[in-house]
Design a protein around this nucleic acid. Structure first.
Lengths: 198, 198
DNA sequence: CAGCTGACAGATATTGAAATCTGTCAGCTG
DNA sequence: CAGCTGACAGATTTCAATATCTGTCAGCTG
């Protein structure tokens, strides 16, 4: 019976539960307020709109994956090529796990995509930024070559070339047999293009 | 007032017109029959279901692009690298032109995608087949290398890596500034990986 | 008086009855 | 008698009435 003060964090946690149970089409702000034992007016005191609340929950949820990926970026003991491959495979597996284990929150994320939400743009910018860091490490270490192409542009190309393995529109294909080999094949081709050869 | 006999071809042409005018959500089989001056029962004599009719129209429409692309595949005077690049750019521009000039037929195509239609699978198989032919030409001519990877698998990887530039789900992004450069960047990376280097 | 409530207006979603459409087929017609 | 028609049943869509939800705000409460 939550007698503590109402904080943004408590609202986010409650909203995540409500979204998980009802999904983005059925969950209402009144449901969230009821779960917290407050009136829905109080929720609007912390989040200006329902869309803002939905975005904040999804951002938190997406950031969990971004944090995991950051560990791969920062593992400077490994070669850039290994990190680039592991990073892409981890991103694929994390997205697939989210789609499978948290279908309602995944559906919420798909709603944001349809709304051209800034949260999604930021998430993509974060990911491309991490890829850029790996590419730059590979270029500095003499492991990669990009010719006259900017690292950020190369990172975007790698991200674009792997959309089938991380863009939610393809979620239905992520459980098909052979999908891992398809990702491996694309990564082989990309790494071939990046690698410095004798 | 069409007094000639009713053929599948005449029905397809009329259906294309009706779809162009009303779009896939509003066009009905009765509309098609009316355009032909026959009863809708006669249309069902040539196409078992409305879905079959929709598929046949879309197949005809997609095949026009496949035919154009085939000319690039068969232009053996050009280097494989040039053909691969031109083929991908032509596919992108053809899809973008269809989305812009024929929005209603493009929407019909999107309906088939949602239905997991065999027509779409065949269209994709056709395209990957053409890519395979270009890759094989490049391998035979000593221009490309794929290591131990099968040409068909490599072709699929190239197709997967360029989905952002031909899959209708991304149609909204095709008019964004810089999209051509994004495609160029991905093609540069892929060709780098395919090319035999000194 | 900071934070919360709950009544309210306008926007959005639900519902169920009516209208339309799909696909069939017995019979008509040239 | 091959090919077409149009009435029909069941499926789907439309539409308008009703219910619910979002977002605001004046005033309550601890």
């Amino acid at each position: 019976m939550a007698t503590e003060t109402l904080t943004a964090e408590r609202i986010l946690a409650a909203t995540e539960d409500v979204l998980r149970q009802y999904g983005p089409t059925k969950a209402t702000v009144v449901d969230v307020a009821r779960a917290l034992g407050v009136s829905h007016g109080s929720v609007y005191r912390h989040f200006r709109t329902k869309a803002a609340l939905r975005e904040a929950v999804t951002k938190r949820w997406l950031d969990r994956t971004t944090d995991e990926l950051l560990r791969i970026v920062e593992d400077t003991s490994a070669r850039a090529e290994d990190r680039l491959r592991r990073w892409n495979i981890h991103l694929f597996e994390a997205k697939r796990a989210k789609a499978g284990a948290d279908p309602q929150l995944f559906a919420t994320y798909e709603v944001l995509l349809r709304e051209n939400s800034a949260t999604v743009d930021e998430h993509i910018a974060d990911l491309v930024g991490q890829l850029t860091a790996i590419l730059e490490a590979g270029l500095d270490g003499g492991e990669f070559t990009l010719g006259s192409v900017e690292p950020a542009r190369g990172a975007r190309a790698v991200f674009d070339a792997t959309v089938r393995f991380h863009d939610p529109v393809y979620a239905a294909q992520w459980t098909l047999p052979g999908i891992e080999q398809d990702l491996d094949a694309v990564l082989d081709l990309l790494l071939c293009g990046l690698r410095v050869r004798g």
